[in-house]
């Protein structure tokens, strides 16, 4: 009919693909779902939706973990700073009472008191500080002789 060359080329195209598919099927007896990653790439089999979702879940969890650890570290450092700040306010209060005592040990500010607000007694002590600064002065005359007092400072800090 005048088309001698065409069927030859057509048939070669047809035979190539089925051969490749047959080769792949016989070279590995496992099913596509059970094959390892490398074999999958060779066989041109992609990941299932469930596998992709699991991979994304793992990736997002690890990313959240990394960012969360940085965030926690920052919070941890901030807490340490608040603690240092509280300690300095405690020291400041304690030394204020010591200064009063050195100047005049009969000062009315040294009278026994229970859990009183140091920020109210010394208004300049910690303006704008979020935590509490409390002091307690206990009469310890029985233990250390007449006129002996013990000072305790309790500072709380915002978390």
């Amino acid at each position: 009919m005048g088309y001698p060359a065409k069927p030859v080329k057509f048939s070669s195209n047809l035979t190539e693909r089925p051969l490749a598919l047959l080769e792949a099927d016989f070279s590995c007896p496992q099913s596509g779902r059970e094959k390892s990653g490398i074999n999958r790439l060779k066989d041109n089999i992609s990941l299932t939706l469930v596998e992709v979702l699991i991979a994304m879940l793992i990736l997002s969890t690890s990313t959240a973990g990394v960012l969360g650890s940085f965030s926690y570290a920052f919070k941890f450092i901030q807490r340490a700073g608040n603690k240092i700040s509280a300690m300095n306010y405690g020291r400041k209060t304690q030394d204020a009472f010591r200064a009063i005592w050195l100047a005049n040990n009969n000062d009315t500010r040294l009278l026994p008191a229970n859990d009183q607000d140091a920020k109210a007694l010394f208004t300049w002590l910690a303006p704008g500080y979020g935590g509490d600064i409390k002091y307690t002065i206990t009469d310890r005359s029985a233990d250390f002789g007449t006129g002996s007092n013990q000072l305790s400072i309790k500072v709380t800090w915002p978390d």
Partner: peptide
Amino acid sequence: TKTFSTGVVLRGMEG
């Protein structure tokens, strides 16, 4: 920015 505050008695001095 961080602000700290403390107070100290100069123990060798008179008030």
